[in-house]
Structures are given as C-alpha cells and as structure tokens.
Design a protein around this nucleic acid. Structure first.
Lengths: 125, 125
DNA sequence: ACAGTTATGTTATAATGTATCGCGTCCGCA
DNA sequence: TGCGGACGCGATACATTATAACATAACTGT
C-alpha cells in the first residue's frame, strides 16, 4: 500500500472539512480547476479506510477522517441526530462487545462501526 | 402509524428471506404479477424500520426483519465477513455503550446499529 | 359530512457506486 | 540494468440505490 498524491489530497480534504464528507463532494473539489472521475475519489477513500486513516459512515454515505493517530484498530462510533442531521463522533466503550465476539469464536474482527441514532440536545422539543 | 397491506407484504418478504434483502429485490418481487415503483417499497421499508419491525443494514444497502418481538429498543448487531459476504446477526452486549451515551447527557437515544467487519471461520486461510 | 392527516400511485430524476480496459509507474530481483 | 509483476491512475460507460414532486385515495376524529 503506497502513499500517493491522490490519497494525500483526499485525506487533506477530509481533515479540512473536520466532519463527514460525501464522496461526490470530494469529486467536485478534488481538483481545483477541473473534474475528477468518481473512481479516482472512491479509490483514494477506500485506501484511506484500508490504512485506518478514515472511516466510512455507511448510514450517511459519507467519509470522515479518523481522529486517532495511534493506528490501533478501534471502533468508530457516532451519534446521529435524526432531526437536524448533526453528527458527533464519540469514544464508545466497546470492550464488552469485543469480548463477546472473541468469546463466540471463529470470527476474526477487523473493524467495528457503531452508529447511534436519536435526537441531540437542541432538537428535543 | 397504520398497519397496511404494503407494510405487511414487505414484512412478509423480509421474514421469508430470513436474512438481509436489498430494496430492489423487493421491488422485483413485491407484486407477484407486475411491477412496483421503488418509492412504494422504500416507504414500506421505512415504516417497518420506524415501527421497529426491521433494521436497515447501511453498509450493505439491505434490510432485515427484526428477530425480537418484544418491541423493546435494542441494538441491531451484525458480523460481516468481508471475504465471503456472509452476514450473521448477534446479540451484542451494549449495556456499557448505552450507559456511556446516557452519561454524556443531552442525547436521546432511539436506535443503535453495530456493524463488525472481519473474517468468518470459513475464510481464515 | 368535514377537515386534517396519513398512505399510495406515478413519473421522472438525482445520487451513489462499479466494471472494465489501457497505460504508466514503482519495486524487487537476477 | 533490464525485466516482470504488482500497484496505481485516467477515462468511459454503466449499474445500483434512493428521492422529489405532485396528484389521488383512504382513514380518523369531531
């Protein structure tokens, strides 16, 4: 797995956004002057996810830079407000869950995503 | 929220499948003799999810009937094999996680989905 | 009956994601 | 240093997934 300008560019855009970004937003902004084909962006994003530098937020069709830099496998956990579309990352205590998966045997865990949906404090009217 | 033939039909198909089903598979099989427009199916599925009778598996663009019939809010948890595409539902111990969300305050939890990716026992070669 | 809400049908289109093929580039190795 | 294989990128076309918008129908409470 190599480190390339495309991947650096994708990561740069994710970091600058500071939150979830849709693939086609990246497609639009990837090249300052022109158009980039979707496969280019998707490949870069897939690589970042593979490298552990970003997460895919499946329920939003979006990507976000990973805020942890220790390279350790961890659960990406998010709180979604179904009302105002806010997304907040948080550190979920998934020790029990990991233990349960290990205990059931036969499954080699690679990555875990936790998505909690509800209402943020501002939307509880 | 009413109980309607469309929603019953959708749930019936999900239950019969016994596993994740894609929306457009339902579109194809919804009406035995003819064609159903996508919005009809998506609306029925959205309603089932809203009613807690089904879950959406975001990372697979699929839906699955909820196997719990107590109507209690719970975490839908799945193990995905990235190699052979098998999906297994399991009961994740998310007590700690729920507690952590409650402890941080200001977020009213409605539903939680946990997706674990890795390799199933058959694919560890 | 009436008014308001909820559900459905229909058409078209938007948004998201991939297959494929060809070419270039990098890397290890003899 | 030349070769071979793996990896990465560009480009085109296409497949898949999901929704907007609008009109009509059905249910619900009063």
């Amino acid at each position: 797995m190599r480190w390339t300008p495309q991947r650096e560019r994708a990561l740069e855009l994710l970091l600058r956004a500071g939150g979830p970004v849709k693939a086609y937003d990246l497609v639009a902004t990837f090249q300052p002057g022109g158009q980039t084909a979707p496969p280019t962006v998707y490949r870069a994003l897939d690589a970042l996810v593979e490298l552990g530098l970003a997460h895919r937020i499946a329920s939003r069709n979006a990507y976000v830079a990973c805020h942890r830099h220790d390279g350790e496998a961890h659960a990406a956990s998010f709180l979604f407000c179904d009302c105002c579309d806010a997304v907040e990352e948080f550190e979920a205590p998934v020790g029990e869950v990991m233990a349960a998966i290990k205990a059931r045997g036969g499954f080699q865990l690679r990555a875990m995503t936790l998505e909690a949906h509800g209402r943020c404090s501002r939307c509880q009217d």
